[in-house]
Each structure stands twice: as C-alpha cells, then as structure tokens.
Nucleic acid binder design. Structure first.
Lengths: 288, 288
DNA sequence: TAGTTTAGATGATTTAAACTCATCTACAAG
DNA sequence: CTTGTAGATGAGTTTAAATCATCTAAACTA
C-alpha cells in the first residue's frame, strides 16, 4: 500500500472529503473544528500535490470536478468505514457493558455500581440481565455455573453457601423445633444443586426438622427471608452486602464450599482498558 | 461523520494499520519511511486516546488483540479504498493518455510527442490507436468525424483538403494528360467523403482526366504518393509536417474546407492539469 | 553459556505540518 | 449602492510528528 500516495496528507484528504460531501469549505470547517482558511489551504495543497483540480471555483461557490467526484466517493467510503470502527472501539473503551443473572445484578452489581464509577470516573457501567449469548464483542457476560465446566482462568468467584436469617431474630434451635428454610432450585437442571446436605453434615445437623421452601432464583429466597423473618440458605456472595447493612445476620453455622461459581467465558478476550479494570475490580471485590 | 473520533490522529491510524498488516513496527516504519520510534509513539498514543490495547507485547514480538484485529480490518479496508483512488488520480495527473486514428497518430501525434514532452517535462504522453469507446475516465479520445455531429466546443480542428505531390516532381498539367490521384474512402460510410468535387470546382478543373485510386486510410494514400512519385488528395493537417520536411510539396492549387473535423467528445470533462495543458497545446498546434 | 544483535519503549529535542490571523476579492443579498 | 459573506492568499504561530539518544529484554549465534 501507499506507493505514490505516501506523501499525500491525510488531514488534507479529510478536509477535502468534508468539503466535497457538504459542498462548502465553511461547513467543512465547522464539522472539523477548523477555520475555513485551513480548509482552503488543505485543498489547494492537495490539488497541487495531485496535479488536478478537484473543485470548480464559481465566484464564492464551489462544485466538484469529475475527478473530484470520483475521489470524494472513494474517500467518503474509506473514511466512513474507519470512523465507524473508531466509534465502536471508543464506545467500548469508555464504558463497561455487563450482562448477568438477575440475582447477581440485584445483589452485587447494581449495589456497587456507584462505587465502581466513583473509583473510575472515566468509565460508565451498563448492566443488563439475561442469559443469551450476546454476539456483540464488548459485552461482558458474568455467568453462574458449574466450576468443573468453566475454565479456571474464567472463574471470578467460587461460591460458598450458608444459612442466613433476618437481622435481630433469635438464633434457631436447630434440633428441637420445625424450621422453614428458603432455598433455590435452579431452572437449569444441569447445574449442581445448592449444597444443603454438605452444609448439614459440616454443621452436625440431621435436618429432619427442616422444611424446605424453594424458589427458582436466590433473590426470591433472600427477599422472602427478610419479609417473613425467616431463614434462607444461599450464597455468601449474594448475602454479603446485606450482612454489612444489618439486614441479614449469620449464626454460628459454618459456610460450605460448592461446585458453583460465577465466571466470565473467555475472560481474557476482553482487552479494553475499561474491561480490564472492571474485571480486576469485580474479582477483587468478590474475593476480599 | 467524525463524532468522538474527530481528534484521533489519521497519521497514527495509518501507522497502526501498517504495523497490524505486517505484524511489525519495524516493517511499518520501512513502508511509511519513518523510524520505528515514530511508529511506537503513534501506536502508544492511539491506545491511550482510544483507551484500549491494540497489541499484545510479547517481549519484542507483537500480536494483535481482538480489538486490534477488528480495528485493523476496518482501517485496512478504508485506507485501501482511499489509496486506490489516489493512485488513479495521481496517474491521471502526471500523464496524458490519448487514443486516436492511425493516421492522426502517425502523422501528427507521434511526430510531435517529443515536442510536447520537452515543453512539459513533468507529463508523459501515451498514445494508442483505436476507435472503441474507452470506459476509463482519463483517456482522451481524439475522434475524426462530421463537424455537424460534434459539439462546437469539442472540435479541435476543422479539416481542409488539397492535392499534394512528392517533393521535386514537376507540377502536373491538369488538363492535358491522364493523372492518377490517391485518395481515401472511409470505412465508416456515414462520414462525408473527401471533398474532391468541391476542390475541382474551386480550382477550375473538370477532372475528367483524373483516375482515382482509393485507400481506406489517408495514411496509405500519403505513403503511396511518396513512394510512387505521385499525387494525393488529403487533409492539410496530416500533410503539414511533411510539407515542412520537404517530403511533400503543394502546387498552385487552393485547399478547400470540408465537413470533416477532429474532435474530443466531452472535452470539458478532462480536468486534470496535464489533460488541460495537452488539449490547449494540441489545439494551438493544429490551428496555428 | 556468554556475547552480540535486534525489535520495541521512552523521554527530550527538533522539524515540519497544520493552524490562525489579517487582509483581500468578488459575488450574493438587501 | 451598500452590506454581508464564502473563498483566496501570505505571514506568523502553534502543535503534531518526527528523530535522536538511550534503554530493556528477548532472540540469535559462536
């Protein structure tokens, strides 16, 4: 590429293209935030360099010559293609677009969005929910899944589970009385279930007095526990902020690890600086 | 066009595109006649401006990121389109390409090509023969035709005809002896015939002793006249240089105007400076 | 393995392109 | 006829682009 045309000024071509498209040096100057003088100089220099006339000058009106028309079309097409790609890249470079589960969005992302944006005033965060594979290259999907399925490098949080209750309620008598426990049954049946059995064993409980009430989103179980002064078995990730806010409390029970995790498929492919900063931030926040 | 990307340096994009396409800052520097330092600065500045990483740096090797790949494709496509158009325009700006009849090429253009190029050292002339309509925008067709068909502004020479003989031969006795006269019968039957009748009348000759020998190109008649020490009835344009070179001579006969002419269809559409200079030169040369 | 070569990174300085300012012309508008 | 305005041009200023000098670290070679 760039044989004879190596020395042709791209700035001049840009000025020419704008003037050609709008039929006016003045309007070109406005579009490019220059003076009409600059446009005039660029075009004259370009005409000398190329040894052609690109415009007819009719008093103070201009019109394109045949050569000018042909060059204008090519430069318009070429610059439009470049400009579109730049817009896409720049948009990606100044915002973080994340899609995730409703529970993660509600319990983690949305509550901490402000914190992220304050720490990164040059980046805006856009959150959506949904599980479809998004074809746009710049949307970061935070998925909930089986740790044995996700690539190690993609996992941002391995989930632990515990029982939590409304703030202020008396610790339950695990052995003596019937207990209602809210929990989750995932719509996606291929996912490992919440590790309630492992939790019972770890805490030396036989669970025969526990009545389970299941929802299809962790969010609903948590909300119901808070509303009904009850108990919920859910992830420590989702309950973390609620603990801090004294909306939920934890008892003497110990949390258990699970085979469930949050992960970002092909995490390494998100290479914009804002994506990298976001991913570093979310991973640190989840695991500190 | 040019929203957020107005301030992005096109020089930097050019450097990036070259480095991306060749996988090397060093090769990009060579292609663009810059130092590798300049390329490195351009790319770093571009990455800062766009807030993305375009290359992975692996020691002293580089490879494109996903974003880099996408931007590289768009900029390659865009710049290629621009470069192709520039090449075409610059070629047109530094050469004159003419297509014309064999006779006009042989008798006028080729003999004076050197004169034109010496007067215009920055322009090269390329001559071809043929009558097909050429779709390329920058080839100037000099056509031979009927003056009533051509646009006035397109006519570069209105033809006159006369009889010429080999240099040194005795003037013919128009009334006493049989005369062989070479002339032309155009392949294109729609053209007016050479105005022999009008010439006879203007010169007070009845022509009953003249035997015509016809060729389908004026060039052939002229050559035959010189070869056989004979007479040819042809255009003053084609014979002009031969007269000056004492290869042909004119007698006391008077030339006659004709309805034939040389013309350039859509002459005004040739707007490169070299085309304009050529057309001005040829018109002056033919009519002085 | 040690020495040499080489591609890219970085900061400082220099150069040249790009830009504005001031003034002008000539046409359009009132 | 006067005023307004788009483009042209030369001079001066500013800034982007380039080079220079030096560095690092990886690749290559003996």
């Amino acid at each position: 590429m760039w044989g004879l045309s190596l020395q042709v000024s791209l700035q001049a071509l840009k000025a020419f293209e704008s003037a050609a498209r709008q039929g006016s040096f003045k309007l070109a100057a406005e579009e490019l935030s220059l003076t009409p003088t600059a446009i005039s100089h660029h075009i004259s220099n370009l005409e000398s360099r190329l040894n052609v006339n690109l415009f007819h000058r009719l008093g103070r009106r201009i019109s394109l010559t045949g050569t000018g028309i042909r060059l204008a079309k090519a430069t318009s097409d070429g610059f439009r293609k470049i400009d579109s790609a730049l817009e896409e890249v720049m948009k990606a470079g100044s915002s973080v677009r994340v899609t995730t589960t409703s529970s993660f969005a509600a319990m983690v992302l949305i509550p901490s969005q402000h914190e992220f944006e304050q720490a990164n005033p040059d980046i805006s965060m856009e959150i959506s929910t949904g599980e479809s594979v998004d074809s746009q290259s710049y949307i970061i999907p935070i998925r909930f899944g089986d740790v044995s399925v996700a690539e190690d490098a993609d996992v941002i949080k391995s989930e632990s589970f515990n029982v939590f209750g409304t703030y202020g309620m008396a610790p339950p008598s695990w052995s003596n009385e019937p207990i209602t426990l809210f929990t989750t049954e995932w719509k996606n049946q291929s996912l490992p279930a919440p590790p309630l059995a492992a939790w019972l064993e770890k805490n030396g409980l036989d669970g025969s007095n526990i009545k389970l009430k299941k929802f299809d989103q962790e969010l609903f179980g948590i909300q119901q526990a808070m509303t009904e002064n009850g108990l919920v078995f859910c992830s420590t990730t989702l309950s973390k902020r609620l603990l801090k806010s004294n909306l939920l409390q934890q008892f003497e029970t110990r949390s258990v690890k699970s085979d469930l995790c949050y992960y970002v498929p092909n995490k390494h492919s998100f290479e914009t600086r804002s994506a990298i900063r976001f991913l570093n931030w979310i991973e640190y926040m989840l695991n500190q």
